[in-house]
Design a protein around this nucleic acid. Structure first.
Lengths: 238, 238
DNA sequence: CGACCATTTGATATGGATCAAGCGATGTGG
DNA sequence: CCACATCGCTTGATCCATATCAAATGGTCG
């Protein structure tokens, strides 16, 4: 049941290629993002929505980083292939998240759809031009980058911890971002998780069964995890 | 020996407490940074220089992040103590580097002088206010953050590699930033390096002697390392 | 049903951590 | 000026967490 057929019936119906640049004037009255978020609002006005099937590449490492991306539905991973052939995942991006915040001329990571995904694509130059005129937008864009920086710094702290700690932290992070109550639906495979945490798939799997045996979590389906004892996970997490 | 005595006799004579906010009009004619770098120039105009002896704390984790810092001389480490007592070093900052680029209300790392250091301290609010009026400054500030983001992302790639790769990468990084030819003068201890790379001091030491035995480097003094074969290091680095 | 793929589980190997000792430089007091 | 304590670093021996190799299980789709 991995097909994602539904055409969303909300404000975002446009499926134009991202080569276009200008915003259609007609979008203004549609139920866009809240006015409390001028950046989000502007992005929706300026961007084009693209659909990507599962595992499709959104952009490649070393491609010019001319666009910024916002996940509308589905989920996305960024990654890099290391010279020894291993894959390091840079991050997972869920509905509402913005990715492609690179700063050089080129992307330093590749991006792929984990599940079928709809992604809002915004020309970077348009956004920075707007930021130049609008201080509020500029500040929001800046804050966004700051949050990304913090997120990456936290990853560094993660990567020096034990396997249990990494997996526990990962689950808590996903619970914050993608849970309904204590039920976490993971869009990504074990391999994705392993490559994100710098572990092997076997270690991730074993750690999950270990956490299950200590009643910290339940794993009714491999992609569904129920947090039964957050404080135990938090203790591991440190 | 925690006193802060030295009075520098160059262009920056002011030793005002960092609680002040405005820039003195008189600074304009002093030999500041090149005009090609408006941000650096403004920072020097707005900031106050502070001296820190070896190992002195510059700011602490969870202190309000009201200031931005630029290393004038000496070197600085940022770090965080993990709940298990280990220390993770967030970064090393050498002469010319800017640190304290946090975005929350509070610092997420502490900062200490590795060697005696002089640091330019700038009120963040003053700088962002300036950026609001001056698009060039804003862009530079943004680029700065982007570079920091890239740097941290590269650390993530480092932390999933083997000990040899981590040490080799570290040496090449330091060679880029702090070398005269092939001679790298390390301001930091083995323990600092270990805590930066997520290794133990013993592993760092052993790895260095291993690299020395393969003629990739020489270690005439524990703090001085000569790169003899960069391509070998690059190969390890990947 | 049968093939395929993701995941789990098991057995073994290994890189780096840990524990412990030795070494060399620096500084201090006698 | 030397004996000695101290500190940072290196070297050695052993242990352990995670990787690696291998096989079994289970869910999905044609």
């Amino acid at each position: 049941m991995l097909t994602q057929t539904a055409i969303r019936t909300d404000a975002f119906r446009r499926f134009v290629p991202p080569t276009r640049n200008s915003a259609p004037a007609a979008s203004h009255a549609l139920a866009g993002p809240r006015e409390r978020e001028p950046l989000a609002h502007s992005m929706h006005l300026m961007g084009a929505i693209m659909s990507y099937p599962r595992n499709a590449e959104i952009f490649g490492e070393n491609e010019p980083a001319d666009y910024l991306y916002k996940v509308i539905s589905g989920s996305v991973r960024t990654y890099k292939i290391l010279n020894d052939g291993r894959r390091q995942i840079g991050g997972f991006y869920l509905s509402g998240d913005i990715f492609g915040l690179q700063f050089g001329e080129e992307h330093s990571f590749s991006a792929e759809a984990i599940t079928d995904a709809k992604v809002l694509v915004i020309k970077r130059s348009a956004l920075t031009a707007l930021a130049g005129r609008n201080a509020v937008i500029a500040r929001e864009l800046f804050a966004l980058t700051g949050r990304e920086l913090r997120r990456v710094q936290d990853r560094i702290l993660l990567l020096v911890k034990s396997a249990q700690e990494r997996v526990a932290s990962f689950l808590l992070e996903m619970a914050d971002r993608a849970s309904t109550g204590n039920v976490v639906e993971l869009p990504m495979s074990r391999q994705d998780i392993a490559d994100y945490l710098g572990l092997t798939i076997e270690t991730v799997s074993r750690t999950l069964t270990c956490l299950e045996s200590t009643a910290a979590i339940e794993v009714p389906t491999s992609r569904r995890i129920v947090l039964r004892n957050r404080s135990a996970l938090n203790r591991l997490n440190g």
